[in-house]
Nucleic acid binder design. Sequence first.
DNA 1: ACGCAATTGGTACTTTAGTATGAGTCTTTA
DNA 2: TAAAGACTCATACTAAAGTACCAATTGCGT
Lengths: 138, 138
Amino acid sequence: MKKTILVFSLLIIALIIFFQLSQYSMVSGNLRTEIGIALIAIVFFIIGVYINKKTLHKSVNTNSEIDYKKIEQLDISKREYEVLQKIAEGLSNKEIAEHLFLSESTIKTHVSSLLVKLNAKRRTQALQIAKEIHIIRN
Amino acid sequence: MKKTILVFSLLIIALIIFFQLSQYSMVSGNLRTEIGIALIAIVFFIIGVYINKKTLHKSVNTNSEIDYKKIEQLDISKREYEVLQKIAEGLSNKEIAEHLFLSESTIKTHVSSLLVKLNAKRRTQALQIAKEIHIIRN
DNA sequence: ACGCAATTGGTACTTTAGTATGAGTCTTTA
DNA sequence: TAAAGACTCATACTAAAGTACCAATTGCGT
């Protein structure tokens, strides 16, 4: 993407130079004006690309970005959320316990309360719901 | 690629128009020059936005599309894939059995072979792997 | 027609997951 | 400082999930 923009810019500049050269004979002294106009065009082009990247990133991320408000609303604590993320990675309770330096029973406690808060019956359903409400990344 | 060429052509046309405008406006006064510059700025801005939207769209779709070749490569059968999808919906084996009008033991058989083929130890891990290799939608 | 892979299903068993309950520690806040 | 909420952990269960084998049926291609 960056390469595309760069190449475009370079080509535009080349074109401008070409026009510049051809116009030397036709119109006498507007070189600076036209370079200015060209610069404006390039700048606005880049601005357009940049703005769109930002806004699209937002809308794209709306699907993959995390709705922290929802997490609060559901009263999910930090630890519970960490466990949820580990579940999403496909880890077992025992493995999660090892990752977080906790006992397996603690993980079970967290998982159980997660299931209640997410209104799920199983961890897989919890994942599906969590994705649906944008609490975890896809 | 075709889009790139199209956009490129548009850019060149826009450039030509803009030079044309600048040449005319040199003769006939400052007001039109400024309008011309503004138009050029807007046109290039729009082109920038357009290009970025197209390219980003592509990359987004790449992430959410299913790699059917991979499914074949992994030797995953139709039924197994159906079961995988149901797992992704967060259903239990019993629920999957009801959805597909099969017995729970059949589902277990399918799940087991899925786990082997996906090299997973648990259904949650199978989901994570399946997403990673673009076998199921996010 | 024969063989092969896919599909289905069962039994028996082990391993995870999940529930219920109780309890101790720690931090924050009224 | 006392109450509240978050975090931790344990025990004792029940319920799913997953494994290992075996076996019957079906469809498809040679």
